[in-house]
């Protein structure tokens, strides 16, 4: 099974580092995930220079890992993936949920105006995703039950078009 980790185009070193750390990789392997693709965006991995190129492939703790700076088509990665772990950017969250994928988000605590946290917890309360922190990432993966998630409603353009039609006097 495949896990896809993305931080979009932002920089979130801690999430990328955590996803290749021993506890997370062991948990992933124990949960049946044997492949991991990471889009690190502008994050920097300090533990090894070779990870900071455009792409590299390694094997660690029984998991095949691909690390990319930017994947050209992350939609394809998301579609293949059985689980997506991402930063809590609203764009990424919407894209992943609309694809019907299981999603664990880790809000970036270093952001100054941290409304990522709000969005993540609001969506967790509605049951659409699981929000966690860097420290709890491994345990969250271990106890994660994709079947408990509530499917996110598909895009409904009629709500906005009706609003605009009302505003401009068409309705």
């Amino acid at each position: 099974m495949l896990v896809f980790v993305t931080v979009g185009s932002t920089r979130f070193d801690a999430l990328v580092e955590a996803s290749i750390s021993e506890p997370v990789l062991s948990t992933l392997r124990d949960s049946g995930y044997d492949r991991l693709i990471i889009q690190r965006g502008n994050s920097v991995i300090e533990s090894s220079e070779e990870f900071n190129g455009d792409s590299c492939t390694i094997q660690r703790h029984g998991v095949d890992i691909e690390i990319w700076r930017f994947k050209p088509f992350i939609q394809a990665e998301c579609e293949q993936a059985d689980l997506v772990i991402s930063h809590a950017g609203s764009g990424t969250i919407l894209d992943v949920l609309r694809l019907g994928k299981s999603l664990i988000v880790v809000p970036n605590p270093t952001l100054l105006d941290n409304h990522q946290e709000e969005l993540a917890s609001a969506l967790q309360i509605l049951g659409h995703l699981k929000a966690t922190s860097i420290q709890d990432l491994a345990s969250t993966i271990a106890s994660f039950e994709p079947r408990d998630l509530v499917p996110f409603p598909p895009f409904d353009g009629t709500k906005f078009s009706k609003l605009v039609d009302e505003e401009m006097g068409f309705i």
Partner: peptide, 14 residues
Amino acid sequence: PRVMYVESFARVKS
């Protein structure tokens, strides 16, 4: 023109 502002989906509480 008429002006319509749509707050971002990322804004939940403020």
